[in-house]
Amino acid sequence: MNRPATIADVARLAGWSIATVSRHVNGAGKVSPEAAAAIQRSIEELGYVPSASARGLVSQQTGMIGLVLPAVRDESPVVESNNLVEYDAQTATQIAEVCHSYQNDIIRGAESAAWEIGHAITIAAVRDPEANSRVRDMASRVDGLVVVGDAVEANLLTHLARRVPVVLVDSTRHESIHDYVDSADAVGAGLLAQHLVEEHGVTQLVFVAGTSLTAVERRCFTVLERLGATLLQVSDATASEPEVVAALVQRREDTGRLGLVCSSDELGVRVLRLAEQAGLSVPDDAAITGFDDCRIGRAAKPRLTSVRQAPLDLGALAVEALQRRLSNPQSEPQHYEVPITVVVRESCGAHSTSPPVSA
């Protein structure tokens, strides 16, 4: 047969009606075991592939899931101190790729889970508000949306949720009205703080983050603030670094031994260099920890204590949550949480690994 096999060809070879074959292929009704076996043999013999559009007419689904993410910055981490990190240009590029692989792993996890349920993923990276029209268009062509971070404005999310199910991942956007997936990152921050205070005699906790706190950073600081931590925000601009150095010196003079919980390993390595410029010895004067357990933190001297997340699991769990929502549209919104692992290294004065901790 030179042309693709049709459902009529399958019905003719199997000896059953087109309607019976259609019910078997689309799962739209009961088929006897004898009919199912004959139809399946015919499908395999003819190499028949059901039409996606035809299946969509029966199931009222497109077979597509939309994945919306904030665009990742293009800047690579820069570390200038020879005493902290040593790697050539090729390794530096690999490190940058690993540190930016968080979203890539979410995509991989989502694609794997979607494949298991017979769906495909279509992806949009949102760089600016003008992308809202493209997100609306995507919502009209998919069965549901997985939205990572704060890639979509809150009012648009509310509008989209009236049309298709929406699952949020690591977002601040109205968790109470959407299914929501995140990591136990705040638990990790609390465990880091507890380790620094109880095991290493830290007298002042400082949470170090960027100038605009992300959803994850807000959750972590909420936990750390209850433990007495202050907030030190670091600009991406190197011109601000003298101010950061001065702030580190001041905190050291005011409080004794510092414990710096940085919101990323990239920032943690940068703070290692700034601490060096401030005349602080790590880990003797200041214990420094990171987040995400990137290769750059493991290459630092001393190596960074960090929180290891599971972005593959985040992506997969988000798709599974969306599938549950499609199967049961009227159920209450659910919150799903992925466990984390705290990895203790020399930057806080020890070298060991803690077990996974789940919220």
Results as ranks from 00 to 15, higher is better:
T6S: 14
I7Y: 08
R12S: 14
R12Y: 02
W16N: 10
I18F: 11
N26G: 06
V31M: 09
V31H: 01
A36R: 13
A37C: 00
I43K: 08
L46D: 05
L46E: 06
G47Y: 11
V49W: 07
L57Q: 03
V58S: 09
Q61I: 00
M64H: 12
L67A: 07
L69R: 01
A71Y: 04
V72H: 03
V78F: 03
V79Q: 03
E80H: 08
S81G: 10
N83E: 12
E86R: 15
Y87A: 13
T91H: 13
A96L: 00
S101W: 08
Q103D: 09
G109V: 09
A114V: 10
E116P: 10
I121G: 10
T122N: 15
I123T: 15
V126S: 07
A131F: 15
S133D: 14
D137Q: 12
D137L: 14
A139N: 11
A139C: 02
V142C: 08
V142T: 05
D150N: 11
A154D: 06
L157R: 04
L160R: 05
A161W: 09
R163N: 07
V164T: 09
T172C: 09
T172L: 10
S176R: 11
V181S: 07
S183W: 04
A186R: 12
L191C: 06
A193I: 00
H195D: 04
E198W: 00
E198F: 02
T203H: 10
F207Q: 00
G210Y: 00
F221R: 04
T222C: 15
E225Y: 07
E225D: 13
A229I: 05
L231K: 06
D236R: 15
E241W: 09
V245I: 09
A246E: 10
D254S: 13
C262Q: 00
S263P: 01
L267T: 00
Q277E: 06
V282H: 01
A286K: 04
G290M: 04
I296N: 03
I296P: 02
K301T: 15
S306Y: 06
Q309M: 15
L312N: 13
L314W: 08
V319L: 07
E320C: 10
Q330Y: 10
Q334A: 11
P339A: 06
V342Q: 11
V343K: 04
R345P: 03
E346W: 09
H351Q: 13
S352Y: 14
S352W: 14
A359H: 11
